[in-house]
Design a protein around this nucleic acid. Sequence first.
DNA 1: ATATAATGTCAAATATATTTTACATTATAT
DNA 2: ATATAATGTAAAATATATTTGACATTATAT
Lengths: 69, 69
Amino acid sequence: MGKNLRLKSARAARDLSQQDLADAIGVTRQTINAIESGNYNPSINLCIAICKVLGQTLDQVFWEDNGDA
Amino acid sequence: MGKNLRLKSARAARDLSQQDLADAIGVTRQTINAIESGNYNPSINLCIAICKVLGQTLDQVFWEDNGDA
DNA sequence: ATATAATGTCAAATATATTTTACATTATAT
DNA sequence: ATATAATGTAAAATATATTTGACATTATAT
C-alpha cells in the first residue's frame, strides 16, 4: 500500500511530531507511524479524530490520491 | 451513537438493499446494518469501498453531521 | 564526535471489528 | 390472511486493529 503523504504533510504543517499527534488523539505513536507508512487500515473514528486535530476533513486526508500534491 | 442516515439514504437512492450493498463490497449484511444503526466503528477501507459503490465521498457519508439532510 | 528528538519497524499481547448462524420484526405483495 | 423480501438484533467464533515494549536508524543540535 502507498504511504499517506498527505497525513505526513498536514502534520508537519502544524509542527507536530508523530508522538504529539498520537498524544492529542489518545493513541500510540506506532499507530500514527503505521498509518503514514501505509500498511494499515485504521478505524473511521480514528481517522476522524486525526482530521479534527489537523483541521482537515476525511476527503482531504484519506480519500483517493489525486496523483500529486 | 447516532444512526448513519446519510448512508441509508444514499443506499436507498440507488435502490440497493443492505444485502445488495454488502454483496457489492464483499462484507456481510450485518456489517452494513450495524454501520447504519450507528453502533459501529468500521475501518476506513470499508468506508471507502462503500463510498465507491454509492458514488459518494467520505465527507458526504462519514464526516460530521450537518444537523439536517 | 556526542547527545537528543524523531522516526521506522518488529513480535507478542490485548481490544475490537467482522463473520457466521440464527431468530424476530417490519414492509410489500398476492 | 399468507407468503416473501428486507431489516433489526444477538451470541459465539474468527480476523485484524491497536497497544506495549523494545531496538535500530535518521535528523538536528551542541
